[in-house]
């Protein structure tokens, strides 16, 4: 039991893979290296999938790819409105990164989103996306006015939301992925065979996908809320 506890504490922190010897040394965490692998996978897949796109007589692979992108476009269009063209690639990037990062746990490695620094970074991106969009498309005054909507009474709550939203996004993702990871580790510790495989379907596949969907959906929703014109 003691060994297990030790292992858990170890897993909570993110070990440093290596240190770049510049200045005081820049530590490169395990999660960053995993992120690089995720990037490589995504870029490689992109180059393979898009190297021979055709306007006429597309193959099944291309059709699936187009369907996915169209789905993303429609989703962003529905939630963000007129400025969807700028946001669709961002949302798509987030979705693909999160999906791959969350699912990479299947291969027995630690998913990068288990590291709270990674999710904090994602939260920062979400923060800039949400409020950057709000001020960019409404102007400074218009952006400020959005905080007093739907009624001025809600101003304090809206201001609180500026920090709560990214924090919630960050913590939800981190907590879920870490939780799933810990449960899986425990299972592997107690029953090393068969059972982890079955539960992996839920904790790695389902939970990872759901967390990606939740993060992307909420981010899109918040962006849309900030810039959508009142009908």
């Amino acid at each position: 039991m003691e060994a297990f506890q030790e292992m858990l504490t170890e897993e909570l922190g993110n070990e440093i893979m290596f240190t770049i010897p510049i200045g005081n040394g820049i530590p490169v965490a395990n999660s960053v290296v995993m992120s690089w692998i995720v990037l490589l996978i995504l870029m490689g897949a992109t180059l393979i999938l898009t190297h021979n796109l055709k306007v006429e007589n597309p193959k099944k692979g291309q059709l699936a790819l187009e369907g996915t992108i169209e789905f993303l476009n429609h989703f962003v269009q529905e939630n963000i409105g007129t400025h969807w063209k700028e946001f669709a690639p961002i949302i798509g990037t987030l979705a693909l990164y999160l999906l791959t990062a969350n699912l990479i746990g299947i291969f027995g490695v630690a998913p990068p989103t288990k590291d709270i620094s990674v999710t904090a970074s994602l939260a920062l991106i979400g923060f800039f996306l949400i409020y950057g969009a709000q001020f960019r498309y409404n102007g400074l005054l218009g952006g400020l006015k959005k905080f007093a909507e739907p009624m001025p009474l809600l101003l304090p709550i809206n201001l609180m939301e500026v920090f709560v939203r990214p924090l919630a996004l960050c913590m939800r993702l981190f907590g879920n992925i870490l939780g799933a990871f810990i449960v899986m580790e425990m299972l592997k510790f107690v029953v090393p065979v068969v059972l982890p495989g079955i539960f992996s379907i839920y904790f790695d596949l389902f939970d990872g996908t759901i967390q990606m969907v939740v993060f992307v959906f909420l981010t899109t929703l918040f962006i849309g809320e900030g810039i959508k014109e009142e009908e």
Partner: peptide, 8 residues
């Protein structure tokens, strides 16, 4: 971890 946030 600042570096991890930046790297990400």
């Amino acid at each position: 971890q600042g570096s991890t946030i930046l790297f990400t």
